[in-house]
Nucleic acid binder design. Structure first.
Length: 260
DNA sequence: ATGCCGAACTTCGTTCGA
C-alpha cells in the first residue's frame, strides 16, 4: 500500500502533472496539500475519471487539502483540526482507507518570525499535538502525511544551508521543538527510519536556481503510529517529478506499508 | 536589505508561499 504526501502548489495548475503521477505510480492514497482552489472549482470529475475517490477540503485562493484513494471512497473521519473554532483555514482532513487512518496536513508556514503568523503556526502545532495524542490512544494504524513546514534538524541531511535558513520560521528552535515533541509521543518519521543518513529533500524553491543547485530541504513528512510502523516496507521521495515541466516546488514523498 | 519564481485573486499589480 503506497501512501503519498504531495504538496501540489495549485491543483488546477498542476492537474496534468497530478494525473500523470497517478497513472505512472498507481499510488493507493495521495494526501494533497495547497490545492489553492475553492470547493466549486475542484477537479472532481477528472480525479474520479482517473479511478480515485476523494475527500476534499478546499479554500478559495490558498491552502486546501484532500485525500485521494484508488478505487475506493475515503471514509471521512474529520474535516478541520480541532481546538480553534475561529480557524477557517483549510489545513487538515482525516479519513479511513482500507483499515488505515490517513491525515492530510498543511501546517502553517509561519513567516515572518515574530508575527501573528508565527504564533498561529506554533498554536497549530500544539493543536496537532493534542489531536495526535488521541489518535495514538486508539492504537490503530495511522499515517499523518503532509507538508509540516518544519525542517527537523540543523543538518545538511535536512537542509542545504543552515545559514541561509537560520531566520526562517521553518527552522526556528520553537518549530523544531514542537515537531520533536510530536514525534516523541511515539510516531515514526518514516523517511528517516528508512534513510538514517544523507539528504532526503522534499522541497526546492523556484527561485535562485534552487533545483539546479540541489538547494532543497526536508519539510514533507509521513509520521506513522506504532502499528503502522510495524508494517513499514519502504519510504522515499519521487524526486524526478520536481524536475519536470510545470512541476510543483515539492516532490511526492511516500511510504509503502505491508498489506495485512 | 531585497529580489530571484510561480499561482491565484485583489487581475496587468498585489499577496502569499518557503
Amino acid at each position: 500500500m503506497k501512501i503519498v504526501s504531495y504538496n501540489l502548489n495549485g491543483i488546477r495548475a498542476r492537474l496534468e502533472r497530478l494525473l500523470e503521477y497517478l497513472g505512472e505510480q498507481q499510488p493507493d492514497v495521495v494526501c494533497c496539500q495547497e490545492l489553492k482552489s475553492a470547493e466549486e472549482n475542484l477537479p472532481r470529475k477528472e480525479i474520479e475519471a482517473a479511478g480515485y475517490g476523494a475527500l476534499w477540503h478546499g479554500q478559495k485562493g490558498f491552502n486546501g487539502v484532500a485525500i485521494l484513494a484508488r478505487g475506493v471512497e475515503p471514509v471521512e473521519r474529520r474535516i478541520g483540526l480541532p481546538g480553534d473554532p475561529e480557524d477557517v483555514q483549510s489545513r487538515y482532513v482525516e479519513a479511513e482507507v482500507n483499515g488505515v487512518v490517513v491525515a492530510s496536513i498543511y501546517l502553517p508556514n509561519g513567516n515572518p518570525v515574530g508575527t501573528e503568523k508565527f504564533a498561529y503556526k506554533l498554536a497549530w502545532l500544539e493543536r496537532l499535538r493534542l489531536h495526535a495524542a488521541g489518535l495514538l490512544a486508539e492504537e490503530i494504524p495511522v499515517v499523518l502525511a503532509g507538508d509540516y513546514n518544519v525542517i527537523p534538524t540543523n543538518t545538511t541531511e535536512d537542509v542545504f544551508s543552515v545559514r541561509a535558513m537560520a531566520d526562517d520560521a521553518l527552522m526556528q528552535p520553537e518549530s523544531q521543538a514542537a515537531f520533536r515533541t510530536l514525534l516523541y509521543q511515539g510516531w515514526t518519521d518514516a523517511i528517516r527510519a528508512r534513510h538514517p543518513d544523507g539528504p532526503q529533500y522534499t522541497f526546492w524553491d523556484y527561485q535562485a536556481g534552487a533545483w539546479r543547485r540541489d538547494a532543497g530541504f526536508r519539510i514533507d513528512h509521513l509520521l506513522l503510529s506504532p502499528s503502522a510502523a510495524d508494517r513499514l516496507l519502504d519510504a522515499g521521495v519521487d524526486k524526478d517529478y520536481r524536475g519536470r515541466e510545470k512541476a510543483s516546488d515539492h516532490a511526492p514523498t511516500w511510504v509503502t506499508l505491508a498489506d495485512l
